Simulated assay, not measured.
Amino acid sequence: MSHIEVITFNQRRRRYTAEQKAQFVALSMQAGSSVSAVAREYGIAPGLLFKWKKLMQEGGIVAVQTNDQVVSASEYQALLKKVKQLEQMLGRKTVEAEILKDALEIATAKKFISPIILSPPDSTRSDK
Rank of each mutant, 00 (worst) to 15 (best):
E87G: 03
E105A: 13
R13F: 05
L27D: 12
L49G: 04
V71S: 09
R14P: 08
I44K: 07
Q65G: 03
S28K: 02
E98A: 14
E96Q: 13
S126T: 08
V71N: 05
R13Q: 14
M1T: 11
Q85S: 10
K81Q: 14
W52R: 00
R13P: 12
K84R: 14
G91S: 13
E105L: 09
D122E: 07
S36P: 04
G60P: 04
E75D: 13
V62S: 10
Q23H: 14
L100C: 09
T66E: 12
G32C: 01
A78P: 08
E41W: 04
G91R: 00
K53D: 05
A31N: 04
L55M: 13
S33F: 01
Q23V: 02
V38T: 09
I117E: 10
T8W: 04
N67C: 06
L48N: 14
A39C: 05
H3E: 15
R92Y: 07
L100M: 15
E75T: 14
T66L: 10
A97H: 13
T66M: 02
Q11D: 11
A97S: 12
Y76M: 11
L104G: 07
A109G: 09
A78C: 08
L49S: 03
Y16E: 08
V71W: 06
L86Q: 15
S34A: 01
P115C: 04
I99E: 13
E98T: 11
F24Y: 15
M56F: 12
K93D: 15
L55Q: 15
Y76S: 14
L104E: 07
A45C: 08
E58V: 06
Q88C: 11
V38D: 04
E58G: 02
G59E: 05
L80V: 05
A63T: 05
Q69H: 11
K51G: 02
I99S: 03
Y76P: 01
E5D: 13
I61W: 05
L118G: 03
A109T: 12
E75H: 07
G43F: 02
T8H: 11
G43A: 03
G60V: 03
L86A: 13
L80W: 02
V38R: 00
E87A: 11
F50E: 05
Q11H: 11
I117R: 01
Q85V: 08
A78Q: 15
I61L: 12
I106Q: 04
R14A: 13
R15K: 11
D68A: 12
S28V: 01
L79S: 09
A103W: 06
R15T: 15
E41I: 03
F9W: 08
S126E: 09
M29Q: 15
E19P: 03
M1Q: 11
S119K: 07
L55F: 02
V35S: 00
A73G: 06
V38M: 01
S36Y: 11
T94K: 10
V64C: 07
P115L: 02
M56N: 06
A107V: 02
S33D: 08
T124D: 10
L104Y: 03
E41G: 08
K54W: 06
W52D: 03
